[in-house]
Design a protein around this nucleic acid. Structure first.
Lengths: 252, 252
DNA sequence: CGCATACTTGAAATAGTTCAAAAGACGTGG
DNA sequence: CCACGTCTTTTGAACTATTTCAAGTATGCG
């Protein structure tokens, strides 16, 4: 168990190092974070609206969605978290949350106490910056989603989201031959792009029929990256990944 | 001139203190930040897509929009900044920006060098946390916009945005008798809620006809806060303002 | 006073929703 | 290993919120 915790923290460290530079001592401090692994059942909300959090959750394995709810009961997905993401790092500075974290598959997470994270930020300014930056990547994605949902038609929205997820998987080495794991139901995917499940289904059909990309139960196969990116008006810049994998990584 | 710079920094300090606690020394450090005031002409992009920033911009006076552009040339507004907001504080950790800052009215801003801000974060962990938290408020708003645009109909979207802006103005003491300054064109407002200018116009007309709220050239008058908030499914929680002013402040 | 920009209104077109029902996948227990 | 119930996906048809196109009316500026 100790071993898996170490490995999971290493995953997060890798992610931080994608965008920040940390000294040996600082890296060790990250790896030495106290943390408790937990298995989350599928369809379970492990953070609920209104909670006051004391821990941040690192996704080790699985797929997690951040859900917001409107008064009328409409669910909206505001963010998707993949392995290596610290889904609610921002709760360190804003512990009172108004959204839920929902496991879309059986997931493994690591709960890291806020106190330990705060402690690191106080001792190592570079770590504070790295955490802050990590949160800002999340915010950059959020901003992109606003444009995506607010200013593009249904096909473009879906194409863009697929490109984003593909690129994020690629960054953690989980994209192979144009295929990546994406075990999300069509209903949830619809919530993430602001569409009806029915219409989302038709959009997916079209992408499949035109041999651009196909989604099945738990993965997505991209046939034509260029067309997908072009339809989705996708530009990796906002993800701030150094060598963002484009078509090359997909066909490799 | 020195005097206005001081006053402007005090404005920002006030904003930080809304959500963070800082010692006397830390407050003084904020007030002692080097900064250069600048007047921005109306309709001018003072930060452009692709820029690599060296300064953050504090809005002292005016109304500023953060614009993103899709490949097809559609503009989308991703955030609105009011006096007291440090519009691009996040550029301290992510200097390479993929969006523009656009002055919607003649505005006064204060340019604060990243170097000075970074310096403070290294010397005072509490300031680093305060900055980080300030950015996360921005992100919380972004998340709210995603749900707003993705899961509500036109009237609700507009109503929600008006409630948000009203509440944010109230927090800086610029809401009087239910009226607040909002010098934004209908075309820009449409970009902020993901609607067509034409349809936005009809929505505004409806809000006016039903005596809920009326927008003119440069301000908004709210007649019926309860109905507006209810239509927009508005809940202040996400803004993390301690005593969020609701109907009381409006009728006061 | 005249030009430019913003706002307003109408009518036709359409993207996306809603409702409804069938078909396919999946796990469970017999 | 099959039968059953449940959940997800797929498809059709009618409907509607929003867009698009187009023209007219204000409003502000030089």
């Amino acid at each position: 168990m100790k071993r898996t915790v170490q490995a999971a923290l290493a995953l997060y460290l890798d992610r931080l190092l994608l965008r920040s530079t940390l000294s040996g001592e600082e890296r060790d401090a990250i790896l030495a974070l106290p943390a408790k692994a937990a298995e989350i059942e599928v369809e379970y909300d492990f953070v609920r609206v209104g909670d006051r959090l004391t821990h941040a959750c690192l996704i080790v394995d699985g797929l997690v969605g951040r859900f917001a709810q409107t008064r009328n009961g409409n669910r909206g997905i505001v963010a998707l978290y993949l392995p290596g993401d610290m889904a609610d790092l921002h709760s360190v500075v804003l512990p009172h949350v108004s959204w839920a974290l929902h496991a879309m598959t059986r997931s493994t997470i690591l709960r890291v106490p806020h106190s330990a994270l705060r402690d690191l930020t106080e001792r190592y300014p570079a770590i504070a910056t790295a955490f802050w930056r990590d949160c800002m990547i999340d915010a950059a994605i959020l901003a992109q989603w606003v444009v995506n949902i607010g200013r593009k038609d249904a096909v473009a929205r879906v194409a863009h989201l697929l490109c984003e997820i593909a690129t994020r998987y690629a960054a953690i080495g989980l994209l192979e031959d144009g295929r990546f794991a994406f075990p999300i139901t069509q209903a949830n995917l619809a919530d993430a792009v602001g569409l009806t499940p029915v219409h989302l289904n038709r959009v997916l059909k079209r992408l499949k029929d035109e041999r651009i990309a196909a989604k099945d139960q738990d993965s997505v196969m991209v046939f034509d990256w260029d067309r997908l990116a072009s339809i989705g008006e996708f530009d990796t810049a906002y993800l701030h990944i150094e060598n963002a994998p484009g078509p090359l990584a997909l066909t490799a």
